[in-house]
Amino acid sequence: SISSRVKSKRIQLGLNQAELAQKVGTTQQSIEQLENGKTKRPRFLPELASALGVSVDWLLN
């Protein structure tokens, strides 16, 4: 799922939720909701993929 991929990649990069949120241009709460499965397809998906160094396709599939 996107939530597990985001969380595992974030941890692999040594980032906390607030640091990832800053790179993406969103809030820590938005990252938390995404990782908890409350958000399925965030509006900041391209920025998120870029910050994590992955493709949008990788996040979604």
Rank of each mutant, 00 (worst) to 15 (best):
S1N: 12
S1D: 13
S1P: 09
I2F: 13
I2N: 02
S3A: 15
R5N: 06
R5V: 06
R5M: 06
V6F: 02
K7M: 08
K7G: 03
S8A: 14
S8I: 10
S8H: 14
S8K: 12
K9W: 04
R10G: 00
I11W: 07
I11T: 09
Q12A: 13
Q12N: 07
Q12G: 08
G14T: 03
Q17E: 09
Q17R: 15
Q17L: 11
Q17S: 08
A18E: 12
E19Q: 12
E19S: 07
E19N: 06
E19L: 05
E19M: 08
L20N: 01
A21W: 01
A21I: 01
A21P: 02
Q22K: 13
Q22S: 11
K23S: 08
V24L: 08
V24I: 11
G25N: 08
G25H: 07
G25V: 03
T26D: 04
T26H: 04
T27W: 04
T27Y: 04
T27A: 06
T27Q: 06
Q28R: 13
Q28I: 15
Q28Y: 09
Q28V: 15
Q29R: 14
S30K: 13
S30Q: 15
I31D: 01
I31L: 07
I31N: 00
I31Y: 02
E32G: 06
E32I: 12
L34T: 04
N36M: 12
G37W: 04
G37C: 07
K38S: 13
K38V: 13
T39I: 15
T39K: 09
K40F: 15
K40Y: 15
R41D: 10
P42S: 07
P42L: 11
P42I: 15
R43H: 13
F44Y: 13
F44P: 01
F44M: 07
F44K: 06
L45M: 08
L45P: 01
L45N: 01
L45C: 03
L45G: 04
P46F: 14
P46I: 13
L48D: 00
L48W: 01
S50L: 14
S50F: 14
S50R: 12
S50P: 03
A51V: 13
L52K: 00
G53M: 07
G53H: 08
G53C: 07
G53K: 07
V54R: 02
V54G: 01
S55Y: 04
V56M: 12
V56H: 05
D57V: 09
D57H: 12
W58Q: 03
W58F: 07
L60N: 07
L60V: 11
L60C: 09
N61W: 12
